[in-house]
């Protein structure tokens, strides 16, 4: 398998002026293309910090981060924007759809920033929304659809530029259990059928169960890295 994420000695320290907080202790991590990984941990455990670094929204204080073989630690803001645009899809707990903008337009957004033509954008957005079962709701506004539907729109948007990797930060945190299962099934399907790497952060064990590999964090450290089929310790 080809590696997609490699962290070597990555740490994050927040300098608040008076005190320094090490949110993420030096970490080595390897994730291969096509893996389905869940990152677990209670709040403040460092999992969100790791997620921000992996998603190229934040830079590590030390260490290097290779995304698909490319060192992204020293990239400029605009270079990171380009990487987020082309290589990464985000799904957030609070959906983060742009208000007062139609579902279709929301899905088109990453393609606008990729400078793709209006015609292609619309076709692709329709196709993606049909894929997540929202082909009938293209012109709805985000406040007119349910939470589960919003998250499907967010997934469609994340897939717009065909990124090899999807980061989902508590994707089911605001959903009821039925919708949660539906959303998780979409991720599983993406991973199984299209080989998309899925990395999700969650604190719910039954959501983490969908993944093949579970990393557990506590106090900025990985305390367990377990693959499905391995014996729980």
């Amino acid at each position: 398998m080809e590696e997609i994420i490699r962290l070597t000695g990555v740490s994050k320290t927040y300098d608040t002026g008076k005190i320094q907080v090490q949110a993420l202790k030096p970490l080595d991590l390897l994730i291969e293309q096509g893996e389905y990984v869940a990152i677990m941990g209670s709040s403040g455990s460092g999992k969100s910090t790791l997620m921000n670094i992996l998603g190229c929204l934040d830079r590590p204080t030390e260490g290097s981060y290779f995304l698909a073989g490319e060192n992204v630690s020293g990239k400029s803001d605009n270079e990171l924007s380009l990487i987020r645009n082309k290589r990464i899809g985000f799904v957030f707990q609070s959906f983060n759809l742009i208000p007062r903008t139609s579902v279709l337009k929301n899905v088109e957004l990453p393609m606008i920033y990729a400078r793709l033509s209006a015609k292609y954008r619309e076709e692709r957005a329709r196709e993606l929304l049909e894929k997540v079962g929202l082909g009938e709701r293209l012109d709805h506004m985000p406040n007119e659809i349910s939470g589960g539907q919003k998250q499907r729109v967010a997934i469609a948007r994340a897939l717009a530029n065909q990124p090899p990797i999807i980061f989902a930060d508590e994707p089911t945190g605001n959903l009821d259990s039925k919708s949660s299962v539906e959303i998780m099934e979409i991720f599983t399907k993406l991973n199984r059928e299209e080989g998309t790497t899925v990395v999700l952060v969650t604190h719910e064990p039954d959501i983490a169960e969908f993944a093949d590999r579970v990393l557990t964090f506590r106090d900025g450290c990985v305390i367990s890295d377990r693959r499905k089929g391995e014996v729980k310790n």
Binding site: N78, N96, Y113, A114
Partner: peptide
């Protein structure tokens, strides 16, 4: 602000 954050996470550059 939040909309700007969303746009940036989706790949909007500073200039955009």
């Amino acid at each position: 602000t939040r909309e700007i954050g969303i746009r940036k996470s989706l790949g909007a550059r500073t200039g955009d």
